[in-house]
Design a protein around this nucleic acid. Structure first.
Lengths: 138, 138
DNA sequence: TTGACATTCATACTAAAGTACTAAATCATT
DNA sequence: AATGATTTAGTACTTTAGTATGAATGTCAA
């Protein structure tokens, strides 16, 4: 909000400056009106893009970020989270084991722990809940 | 892409028209330069907002809609899709069976068919692929 | 250094998921 | 009325997932 006010203020100043410049050039003929108009057009085009980007980011976050605090709150460890990520990619326990260079048995342990911590009965349910908690990017 | 070209073209025309108008007013003094500049500023502000909204919608659709054509393309039937939706909600075969008032055996058949059609080995992989295909809302 | 966790792995088991068929009833379409 | 696709359901089987339990190792802070 502070930034928006700042941007607006500085643009009003810039606009006034251009008005003065246009008046000055009107009398002296140093700068052509076309150039001034073009400059104003470009400035306001950029302003429109900037303002729109701001508002869109606020209403609908485009890049859904991972809520790491929530992961901690749920007591999910670093390794358990790694496993959860691989689960959401559709990998089997064996495939995850190969990817993380551990045995399938270890993965099973991690998966069981994750299921308890996400209060889920199945890995599919865990995926769904993890996305609801913003632990996984959908 | 066609729309973008059209919008750009029409705006270049509008810009040229304004240029001519500014020249006209310069000689006759009917319209003040300030008003013309203000008009240009407003037009390009709106243009910036419009273009940005367009581009953002294209790169990252805010309301992810279901691509029903893709479902057809993949040969997934109505019932199979229903099962797929329930899978993504984290339900087990038995739970899906109860929800859809059929036997678990039937659900297994549907699941198997969906897995083949989505070229997946597991239901978790099917969920991932379905979301990539915009068949399921993430 | 002792305790609390995290990570690893194992065994043994149960439950669920998935495959590969077969087959019958339904339903829309030509 | 015949055809093809859908939906349903079954059996028998293999594979994967998940539980329960115990135990070894490593880490890190109190």
């Amino acid at each position: 909000m502070k930034k928006t006010i700042f941007v607006f203020s500085s643009l009003i100043v810039a606009l006034l400056a251009l008005f003065q410049l246009s008046k000055y050039s009107y009398t002296t003929g140093d700068l052509s009106i076309e150039i001034i108009i073009a400059a104003i057009a470009i400035i306001f085009l950029c302003l429109g893009i900037y303002l729109n980007k701001k508002s869109l980011h606020k209403t609908t976050p485009i890049t859904t970020k991972v809520d790491y605090e929530k992961i901690e709150k749920l007591g999910i460890s670093k390794r358990e989270y790694e496993v959860l990520v691989e689960i959401s990619k559709g990998l089997s326990n064996r495939e995850i084991a190969e990817k993380l260079f551990v045995t399938e048995s270890t993965i099973k342990t991690h998966v069981s722990n994750v299921l308890v911590k996400l209060n889920s009965k199945r890995r599919t349910q865990a995926i769904k809940k993890a996305k609801e908690y913003h632990i996984l990017t959908s």
